[in-house]
Design a binder for these strands. Structure first.
Lengths: 339, 339
DNA sequence: CTGTTAGCGCGTTCAA
DNA sequence: TTGAACGCGCTAACAG
């Protein structure tokens, strides 16, 4: 047990040089001759040396981990973002620690604390639905830990953000429904304090006004956008015999709930009712007539966010200006002929 | 910048005691009076002390992280397992590092190396489809790092495993199809070297023989079980006009591929054809007549595996006998009346 | 370019 | 029960 006890001192001793030179060589410092570097690397290899990351971390007071804070890993959108994060981070030599807030502010605070205590190199954050104040992120500033918001960002402009063009997404979704002949379009919206849902709503309003359709407040139905919400909302709509010919859903969960409920009660979704969600895979498996989705590029978003974060981590001066990257959605119209 | 520089020395100094006593108190050692303990804890609180995990890790030569090695995070089954892992680990004070092998042996080896170098407290593993030898896991033994296989385990019995009763799952699936009247049931199986697929196949064979149905080798179609495989296989079957009245799919991906292809070419899946997969959510969203699934308890599996791992981490003696926990699947018959 | 020296902050010996 | 002292393995500062 416990083999691998080779330290830089061992390899220094066997080469009659100093351990600090070995350290420099292993870190590819320019302050070592290529010749001695080669010698040291060869020796290290042959002795089966492996750097003790714990000691290295302590000395540098930082780890090679990137913390990721998301509401839920099981949401398809987030797991595809993580796919992008993982690949980018892995290639750059970082490992990824994933933490779920489960949409609770309390947990989110806790997670940030833990990540700071573990001296992560940087943090990627998509805030929870409960998050209305952002004080807990200040600790990252005070500790000099760079961070990037993605998707669910906060309205503070002085941050690094990688976000979706939610306004255009909402606009496209609504415009699509209008062009399909819908006159009375409902919007299942999210919590009013989250930027992304505010912007999707703005897009919805703009598309209506551009088409000379009157905006009605009662057509906006806000919820936490869980699948269950979709069911409950749709049930109430049907029970109340509310008149509508289109729904623009602000996310996939609520859309799935709505479709499932309609299926359950045996209501055939007519061609002219279209449901537009904001994430790909899960909705695409729910077969309805004329289903169209506004897909978010989750994977690419993960890559962009990680690249931006790493750029900030690598930056020595700490004076990089805050940056906001906006990504576009894709409207995907599905074949309505499938049964 | 860089506030929080409170160390055990600072709090020792302000109390006129030694830092070692503070260390003991903070670790709740029995070798400190309750009175001084209280005093120290109060002071630590008021000074805003936070343990430096990096230093602690170095000294103990182990972190409080659990490594998880899985093929793909975006597979629904794995993300539900992770949900269980996360919750259990979090409650026990561990953080979770997720690593994806992407079904590549090379990456899997690499990951194990990295986890060892980072001195994780333990590892949870579901092996890749390429993994046919298990030497790279020996390094965990030699370093004294406990590990547990879940779902995709290897045939080595002297390990900790949390597995599905795949034999019974395969049996139940096949029996279900037979009882629905199927006489000629195909089986979409996985790589022959993986235990789980071998066992599902055994269950299939047993159910056939119990029903006096002749087993035919040509009814077994093996692949890597990706969605694309399901499409390709089904296309070939249809093109070749192969005669069958039921399919037992060894996972959800391949089932989705099959169903999607049939949808694409406009073939209505007749009532007597049932497709049985091995994971829940994604398939449940694919609406077909008489779809039945054999659900795996992913979340519970994550909990069990993590509990077993933590038990092994906590064990000082290192002589805990290997343990194998078997979990049962649930056959879920879906309402075939939905269109 | 290389060697010397000095910790990072904690946990654990050994003494008292 | 507490204190003193040491070192985990590495890197950074300062010499030369």
């Amino acid at each position: 047990m416990e083999t691998n006890k080779v330290t830089i001192h061992d390899i220094a001793k066997s080469l009659n040089i100093d351990s600090s030179t070995v350290s420099r060589a292993l870190n590819d410092s320019p302050r070592v001759t290529q010749k001695t570097k080669d010698k040291i690397l060869a020796k290290a290899q042959s002795m089966g040396y492996q750097r003790n990351m714990l000691a290295s971390n302590l000395r540098k007071n930082v780890t090679n981990s990137i913390g990721v804070v998301i509401p839920r890993i099981s949401r398809h959108f987030f797991s595809s973002v993580i796919q992008g994060i993982e690949e980018t981070a892995y290639d750059a030599g970082y490992s990824v620690v994933i933490c779920q807030s489960l949409e609770e502010l309390k947990r989110e605070r806790n997670i940030i604390q833990t990540l700071v205590a573990n001296r992560v190199a940087g943090v990627l954050i998509s805030i929870s639905m409960e998050t209305t104040n952002y004080e807990h992120f200040q600790i990252l500033n005070s500790q000099g830990i760079p961070y990037v918001f993605f998707d669910r960002h906060c309205e503070i402009p002085a941050n690094n953000n990688v976000i979706i063009n939610d306004f255009k997404g909402g606009y496209d979704a609504t415009q699509h429904l209008v062009s399909k002949g819908c006159k009375n379009i409902l919007h299942f919206s999210g919590p009013g304090h989250l930027e992304i849902y505010k912007n999707r709503l703005k897009g919805y309003k703009k598309a209506l006004s551009d088409n000379n359709i009157l905006f009605k407040t009662e057509n906006i139905i806000s919820s936490k956008l869980m699948e269950q919400d979709g069911k409950v909302i749709t049930k109430k709509l049907m029970d109340d015999k509310v008149n509508f010919d289109g729904i623009f859903c602000a996310n996939d969960q609520v859309a799935i709930g709505a479709i499932k409920y309609l299926n359950e009660i045996g209501v055939k979704i007519p061609e002219q009712v279209a449901i537009v969600g904001f994430s790909n895979e899960p909705v695409s498996n729910v077969i309805t007539p004329s289903l169209t989705t506004i897909d978010q590029p989750g994977f690419e978003m993960g890559i962009k966010a990680t690249e931006l974060l790493i750029k900030n981590i690598k930056d020595q001066s700490g004076t990089l200006p805050p940056e906001t990257i906006t990504m576009e959605t894709n409207l995907i119209e599905r074949n309505s002929s499938q049964k």
